[in-house]
Design a protein around this nucleic acid. Structure first.
Lengths: 192, 192
DNA sequence: AGAGTGATGGGACTTGGTCTCATCACTGTA
DNA sequence: TACAGTGATGAGACCAAGTCCCATCACTCT
């Protein structure tokens, strides 16, 4: 037996997501979230730096997975291929089928609120920065890294939209590969 | 003679930017800003919805300029060319030489604070959405629009970094054209 | 002269977020 | 069994962001 109910952070995340979905983000106070989780405001802020972050904690690990996936790509892989390698890793370690339902609900809540969209936008920027850094470590030039990362971020976004938007149990990696092909084709036309 | 000191919003913007540069964003209260502008907290929030927005007001017009520039591009222009046409318009109407010093100081302040970076990230997302919408109105497919816009956003970001980072009085449009050429070249390699 | 108008000031109020100190349940050691 | 240590939690004061309502004030129009 633990001294306290275990997994306080996870309980807070679940409580927050449920409440945001029920009443909306603005109409939910931090005290509401804490109470539903059987905790207090103090404890909430001990686990999360602010109210928005309760839906984004753990995102730092995704940047690591992506960066490691890019770094682990074969030396012969072109920049965009290396990014695709990173996306595969994310599909294997982060966007797993068991988390799909949660991700979908979370995404609906985020889309409905400007403050949450804002935080998501910042996380996206930081993610692209991490990806670009990983590419530069492979010897890719600055501009080429940023181009590849920009396209890779779009692939990830499209894939994530489709993965959370369908009822099918499709694997994220497969969706991402399909999105990559489409982006590649559109890119070729766009640059022509 | 006006009843009150004119240009209250502009005075608030200048006061805010100066204070943020002097003491930092976090150490500056809205009351500090209002007082330096000879106003009060009430009036601040009458002109800006929140503290961050004081550095981003007017950004909505840039989306309009971009969208109109894209719409005004020749029918024969490829997606990325249309975006470049929009960037030209921005260089002519928004990022004019007279605003360069202000833009540079503003960018330094934003880069130093997470809350401001967050707002900037959201504005960037909304900008790309506006650009993509303008492209789709030209009959460009959804994915192709997003690819072109993603590359166009990178061009704008690179150009903006260089335009605000140099002491030269270079025109934004010229810097953007140069950045576009580099992105195009890197993109061709990335897709190979 | 007097009513109307629009920007401003003032202050109460809620909530996010910080900080400090107390509590409480369990652990390890004597 | 006794007792100090530890780590997560609770309680509450406090500050700043943001909302709201109402008063004021300077100027305009009739």
């Amino acid at each position: 037996m633990a001294r306290w109910q275990p997994n306080a952070p996870e309980r807070l995340v679940v409580a927050a997501l449920d409440l945001f979905a029920e009443r909306g983000y603005e109409s939910t106070t931090v005290i509401d979230i804490a109470e539903r989780a059987g905790l207090t405001k103090s404890t909430f802020f001990r686990h999360f730096p602010d109210k928005r972050e309760v839906l984004f904690a753990g995102g730092g690990s995704m940047a690591d997975v992506l960066a490691e996936g890019i770094a682990a790509a074969p030396d012969t892989a072109a920049p965009l291929e290396a990014v695709a390698h990173g996306l595969d890793a994310v599909g294997r370690e982060v966007f797993v089928p068991a988390r799909r339902a949660f991700a979908t609900k979370r995404q609906t809540v985020i889309a409905a609120n400007p403050e949450l969209r804002e935080r998501e936008a910042l996380k996206g920027i930081d993610l692209t920065a991490a990806m670009a850094g990983a590419l530069r470590s492979r010897g890719v030039s600055d501009v080429a890294s940023r181009v590849a990362v920009q396209l890779g971020a779009l692939v990830m976004k499209i894939a994530y939209e489709r993965w959370t938007g369908t009822d099918e149990g499709e694997e994220f990696g497969d969706v991402a590969r399909q999105a990559l092909a489409e982006v590649r084709e559109a890119g070729a036309l766009s640059l022509a």
